[in-house]
Amino acid sequence: MMLIKIVEHIDLNEAYAHLHTPEAGAVNLFVGTVRNHSKGKEVMHLDFEAYETMALQQMQHVADAAQQKFPLCKLVMIHAVGAKEPGEPVVVVGVSSAHRDASFEACRFLIDELKKTVPIWKKEFYEDNSVWVNAHP
């Protein structure tokens, strides 16, 4: 029903395969990737760190809330950790549902809530320095 995990490398086919079900008329996947620039600077690579036990628990809370809110068949949330290059997928959230409206809304809800509450941290490395994203006002 739900596939929730933290991995080194995201397998998009696995996410899609999990969502597949004959009851669904819609499968929706959002893939977040590494952007090659941030605040006008070129990003060389990113490093993601997770507090894994808590991150999985908080992802479960978000998934449970989505399940309550929308009529879903299946759901997936996968986040990557470790060093990532521009273009690489770092997060995938997805659902299948009978109709498309719920699938779009649920994906939006999953990624927005994940970004607010799941304890995962991103460090951006530029040519001359590096910063923990969002750490300072």
Binding site: H79, V90, L114, K115, V118, P119, I120, W121, N134
Partner: peptide
């Protein structure tokens, strides 16, 4: 655990 501002996704 200490949780500084998160930045996943």
């Amino acid at each position: 655990a200490l949780i500084p501002p998160v930045s996943g996704g």
